[in-house]
Nucleic acid binder design. Structure first.
Lengths: 331, 331
DNA sequence: GCGATCTATGGAATCGATTCCAAATGTGTT
DNA sequence: AACACATTTGGAATCGATTCCATAGATCGC
């Protein structure tokens, strides 16, 4: 049995296609008897309006797409949960796709916006160069979350990464740290801002650091371990380490602990994100909480404005407040 | 400036719409000069064929949708990476959506298959009742991964959960355990099979257990802690605990350790999934590795058959081999 | 040089749902 | 009873890309 069309429904119900469509969309007035007949026919044929035909005619899809390199971070999945809920509240469906850091695949997914497969795009961790992101963002309904390219026209939703890094570094200094190190991801766009905050806090305390170590590729537990190993091998061991993510911090703690050092007594360690790992680590990690779910909701709201209000390409970042979460890995 | 259509391209290139379409799809022969003119016009107007119009005419979308309750498990993201790669190899785009365990939202997403928004569906952790899953799966291009409903007509890709649980339980017994407990998730469809395997291994060793504890809701670190707490409060403490996931095992280890017990000397603990947490835990966890990425690839391959070969609704599960990973949490 | 075959092309029909316009029916007013 | 007006309905046009069919032109053999 082939798929039923609006024609079939009309025939079965003994009305015209116009009436069927009116019942489906509740647009203008339809008599109660007609509505009843149509609904009966719809049920009988188990009819569903074909999405492509509807989208073609309406010139919109009520779908948005969220892009990220991968999905294995709790921050990402929380952000996307926020996007999804906000989308649902507004009658949209939000879909997610992973680029795996593949330029071509990312291009293909961005093309889904260009060719009208979706109405809007949420970009988490772009692989393409900054200028391309800006070009796309200026022309299309796009919003960036968390990782936002650094440019005049930058726009999107995130925390104030510079301030957050400043705050947590200050906390480390306040608890007695004199020699600080930082483990950051080379690829991260937030990295430069965080390094600024880190250095600013040091400068205000009359300190400085030559131990900002950058990791490449997969910035996870093992990266944390191997970067910490470099610290251990260095001539002067820091007494506090600020890590780009909680997972890296966990790796760092593990490496230090295995080397016989005590955290936080010998070396304090701070993470970032307040992900599940922060609580699972021993000792539990001091970290910065990002309001990930809320960021997702706000991102969708701003995207919605771009999608529906003509020419509303407002620029500028929207900052959401972060929160310092102090646990046992710093004293 | 409105979106360019195939008509506009035809006019600009001085050819007919048929020729433009032929160039786009490389279908039948087009002269070199015409091809050149069309490509120039496409570039000039930065034209992209509208997805909905194309999908309508072709009656397929070259998109598949992968559904899961949430995305915060490494197994899920690896499975979906496999699906995504296999899809890309075949010219498909794979999209992901989270249901959050919400029936209505799940229904809405399944409807995307019914209304032709996508060509196929990969279901990870269905919220709807088993019979509904079966109904959907029998009629439409659907494949289940990992969590597969238990029915005659069951079909999908997973490991042999019963055997895997048997294997790891046997390992616990082989290393000296006499009193075993199991922490499982009430909602998980794989749970019953794993419990079978657990009990079978016990029975073969002449043992039995009245300590199969079921967790509800969010089955994570805290669930592991609180279930372990129940074990500690019980009259006879087990000497080995088999946990449904690594994260739960990590919670269990933490609770036991905080209570002054040593893992594995006093109590051995085993996890499941070989996720990142297994290595991050102290001691590192013995666990079962699921070939998640490969499962995703195979799942797409089977889905592709369902989507393209008429009436090919082969039934039955496809099992992929699991692997026991022995680490320090068992001795 | 003429019919036969092949290649390239234009243009109309098509996919299925929506929407506009006009017509038909019904209601109320004087 | 006649007219104005509101409600409901049918049906054609529309969205944009694809594809089938017919034809114009080129190529070939004899």
């Amino acid at each position: 049995m082939a798929r039923a069309t609006v024609q079939d429904v009309a025939r079965t119900a003994g009305v015209s296609v116009g009436t069927v469509s009116r019942v489906l969309n509740g647009s203008s007035a339809v008599s109660a008897s007609a509505k009843e007949k149509v609904n009966a026919a719809i049920k009988e044929l188990s009819y569903r309006p074909l999405a492509s035909a509807r989208d073609l005619r309406r010139d919109r899809t009520m779908r948005v797409l969220a892009l990220a390199k991968n999905l294995d971070s709790l921050v990402i999945s929380e952000v996307f949960r926020g996007v999804g809920d906000a989308a649902a509240d507004n009658g949209y469906v939000s879909l997610i796709a992973a680029t795996d850091g593949d330029r071509d695949r990312e291009q293909q997914l961005v093309d889904m916006l260009r060719n009208g497969s979706v109405d809007g795009l949420v970009i988490f961790s772009p692989t393409m160069p900054d200028e391309d992101v800006n070009t796309v963002a200026e022309q299309l309904s796009v919003i960036q979350v968390c990782e936002i390219v650094d440019a005049e026209a930058a726009f999107g939703v995130s925390i104030d990464d510079r301030q957050a890094a400043y705050d947590i570094t200050k906390h480390l200094i306040d608890t007695g740290a004199k020699k600080l190190a930082m483990l950051a991801h080379r690829g991260a766009r937030s990295g430069r801002l965080r390094e600024e905050g880190f250095r600013q806090a040091l400068a205000e305390a009359g300190l400085e650091s030559d131990q900002v170590l950058l990791g490449e590729g997969n910035f996870g537990f093992h990266a944390g371990r191997s970067l910490a190993k470099k610290l251990l091998e260095g001539k002067d061991l820091p007494d506090a380490v600020f890590c780009g993510t909680d997972v890296v911090a966990a790796g760092c703690v593990r490496e230090l602990t295995d080397a016989g050092l005590r955290v936080p007594n010998d070396v304090a360690v701070a993470g970032f994100d307040d992900s599940a790992q922060a609580e699972m680590c021993v000792p539990e990690l001091t970290t910065v909480r990002q309001p990930a779910y809320e960021m997702g909701r706000v991102a969708f709201a701003e995207l919605l404005e771009r999608m529906t209000v003509e020419g509303s390409h407002r620029k500028g970042r929207t900052f959401l407040p972060h929160e310092l979460v102090i646990r046992d890995s710093t004293k």
